[in-house]
Nucleic acid binder design. Structure first.
Lengths: 221, 221
DNA sequence: AAGTATTTTTAGACTAATCTAAAAATATTT
DNA sequence: AAATATTTTTAGATTAGTCTAAAAATACTT
């Protein structure tokens, strides 16, 4: 059987996401933490993925995705983000509700399905959290974006993405009226507590903590 | 854990479908055949479902769904048929392609998802094969329909459903231009080989075998 | 009603994914 | 560089779902 189980897919996706943040091989423990499982289980699975040539692996040296593993993971990301877009744009879900459901939908296997869905949605390049959606060949669209702390005092930007896409953060942004496409102007920075005063859509003033600012991506206008 | 696995769901659905055709308890072998597995596996699973009170079961006496089991199965049918409708109506799949993909999609757990999908599709009452879609409470819409052999010679009907929804049959119907909504007139029956001559949409003449006729449902106009 | 055939259940083994606990390897500290 | 701490791997057990083969129960025939 040369098929890939749901569990294997989840490991591949977790490794892919850890790879994005580091050049180094990924540690067993890091994967165990991401997958909420034990290091022993990770070792077992790594051996299995290695046998299938989806990861490069040497004992005690951590793990990297092979080209094959990487393209499988990219395809999962594509499916995840397209389904999220469907849920928000067509079924009127809000951006913080969709992650969990998309975790399930991303494992539906048909390529034809996902390509038809892509067309149905108008071949979107970014998902409801501003993350890029790879195309059928695995190419990501890059956007020149900067995090809010990089935006100069007095400058303006459009909110185009978030770093953290978990429920609590997205719900907090909802409360602040911060949705994708919102215009943000940096009014003043307060070194004392690293907070930032912004104006939202030229109207509403707001103080943001540094933690929030680090999780917001804007493009300059 | 009071959750229901994918495998358990598939057994429930198979039993539900067997129940539709008989008043008698369902035999272990019948389930084994439907699930393409061994009788031994079925016995194991039946015990498990029985412990969860999803089926009534006595050794050697066959199996029936409990109210609980029945409503879970109905919900699976609802999900299956709504997804099929989505695939055909929104993603332009043809009616013979959708069964396999819907077998996967029906296991996605969110109730909110399926109710939103239902609304998005305009709360359809029948799927692309003419089968009724139960509502969120599990109620089926019944339609007065008869199979083609019940339609009198000279009478007309509109094709509203098929008994067999497997690929080969549906593809055969495609070749004959027989799709849901087609007008069928019985021209003449030939007792010699039990075949039937029909006219499709008042234009195309066609001979159908009894096997095909038995699988077609029409409503009279 | 006795014997045969069929169906169903039990028994025991297998695989995938997981766990805990212990052993081995690597990294850090003094 | 030795001692300690951490990380990773191994070993052995567990669970869900499956299998085959044999035993038990039921059904069919004559």
């Amino acid at each position: 059987m040369n098929t890939t189980s749901r569990t294997e897919e989840n490991y591949l996706k977790a490794i892919f996401q850890l790879c994005e943040r580091s050049e180094e091989p990924i540690a067993t423990n890091a994967i165990a933490h991401a997958m909420k499982t034990s290091a022993a289980s990770v070792t077992d699975m790594i051996k299995k993925l290695s046998k299938k040539e989806l990861v490069h692996y040497q004992k005690h040296k951590g793990v990297r995705l092979t080209d094959n593993g990487s393209s499988m993971a990219t395809n999962l990301v594509r499916k995840h983000r397209l389904w999220e877009t469907f849920l928000v744009n067509k079924l009127n879900f809000s951006w913080e509700e969709v992650h969990e459901i998309a975790e399930e939908l991303e494992h539906i296997p048909s390529k034809k399905l996902i390509d038809r869905l892509d067309d149905f949605l108008g071949n979107p390049k970014f998902d409801p959290h501003g993350d890029p959606i790879p195309d059928a060949e695995g190419n990501f669209t890059f956007r020149k974006q900067i995090s809010l702390p990089e935006l100069a005092e007095g400058a303006e930007g459009i909110l185009v993405g978030v770093q953290d896409d978990t429920m609590p953060f997205l719900q907090y942004l909802n409360k602040l009226n911060l949705t994708l496409g919102t215009k943000i102007k940096i009014v003043e920075r307060f070194p004392y507590d690293e907070s930032t005063k912004i104006v939202i859509n030229g109207a509403q003033e707001q103080i943001l903590t540094n933690k929030v600012c680090l999780n917001l991506f804007v493009k300059t206008v």
